[in-house]
Design a protein around this nucleic acid. Structure first.
Lengths: 226, 226
DNA sequence: ATTAGTAGTTATGTTCTACATATTAAATGT
DNA sequence: ACATTTAATATGTAGAACATAACTACTAAT
């Protein structure tokens, strides 16, 4: 077996141009709004066809790192990281171990937002949350949608838009993993209504314990697996 | 002001082809390993040039959703989501509110991993962690690197590779935000060595309190801002 | 002098053709 | 039956050409 030897340039031109451009952007310290050379200039500078350059640029456009206008040219812009995440987060084509990891990540987030919640909660938020929890008790049929609504509202209350959107993306993962394991959504001893109550009048510590108890079935399952 | 009116098709062909392909993949229920039509077939089916198709395909290749081999053609594959994340996570071109959000996200993760840690910790892990903490006390100069090593090891101990890699990506964000706010890395009353001790002999609850205390300076700063 | 209109220029958007290259599959020869 | 050669095919890359939007500058008209 041949060891310590690797292919010279297995990667495609577009891939290499992407890497070169990325390096160029950081080296030149590009900031949002800064104009880029034209496609032809880049092609000439890199010694490749305009076609290849465009394939690489197309990638940056997808990430939101580059924006273009005709005649004006291209400029750097700040990418939408959550939006990008969305583009790869397809449960159908994800390997199982990653799915499991993301499922756990969701649990970790859920357990970790307590401090932010107590830092930023408002009366209006609590009222709305309470209303969601109350609605849930009436409509036995729509447990999943209210489940989503409740936890979604929690993330919203953190005042962290990125986290809220991120959690939203993880929702299908959550559902998918549950389906894979043929499990039903089961809540622990602490209900949503209990959580609201703690959030309103209790302490951070109590809330953390409450949330753990609420998610206990999920943690129990993890314990079984290992 | 004109209301309820939007541009017909402002998006580029490549962008629309990307969307069409994405829809096609899910509709046809493609799984990793499944072969795709050829570029020419796609171009014909979509009524666009092969060039445009290639620009769209290039995007999927970047995300790792498509892999290609000459002659054989293209197949669906499972994307590397953390790797994709890395491609957009450049602090230099990110807007400040997103940076702030990610900084908080890091804190939330840190607070939320306690349960996983106690579920999966091993003696070997604890030994290594203790060693890192001990090294830190000796080398006053390299506080930041040991800071990274310590918390990195914690994530590693969760047994969640995705989370570990994700945290690794957030590190530069952490540093960047600190630099932006001209703050130094300050630990709370609970040190790394204390955390190790709790992790070894204490309870989950104690560890959570310890971690909160360790990160308290950061939470205090958040409190100041709001 | 301000406005309106016109023409020219430029960079991206799109298409088409051609050829290179890797790899599979078929054909051929021993 | 096996090894070798040949052909076929899908991706990779290059180059030219034209379309299109948007900026610039010049011109004409009120």
């Amino acid at each position: 077996m041949v060891n310590g030897i690797k292919p010279i340039a297995a990667k495609s031109m577009a891939e290499r141009v992407e890497a070169s451009l990325r390096e160029y952007f950081t080296k030149e310290n590009f900031k949002p709004g800064d104009p880029l050379p034209t496609e032809l200039e880049l092609a000439a500078a890199l010694g490749v066809s305009r076609n290849v350059v465009r394939e690489a640029l197309s990638r940056f456009k997808m990430l939101g790192i580059i924006e273009t206008k005709k005649k004006t040219g291209m400029v750097i812009s700040n990418p939408d990281i959550v939006g990008t995440f969305e583009k790869v987060l397809n449960p159908e084509i994800m390997d199982e171990s990653t799915l499991k990891d993301l499922f756990e990540l969701r649990l970790v987030l859920e357990m970790g937002i307590a401090d932010l919640l107590f830092l930023r909660k408002t009366e209006a938020d609590l009222d709305e949350l309470e209303e969601i929890a109350a609605r849930e008790v009436k409509d036995k049929n729509f447990r999943i949608s209210t489940e989503i609504a409740f936890h979604g509202k929690l993330y919203e209350m953190t005042g962290n838009d990125t986290m809220k959107r991120f959690q939203n993306l993880l929702l299908p993962i959550f559902g998918y993993v549950m389906k894979l394991e043929n499990k039903k959504f089961v809540s622990g001893k602490v209900t949503h209504q209990d959580l609201v109550k703690i959030l309103r009048k209790g302490t951070v510590k109590e809330f953390k314990e409450g949330m753990l108890s609420h998610l206990q079935p999920h943690f129990d399952r993890l314990k079984q697996l290992k």
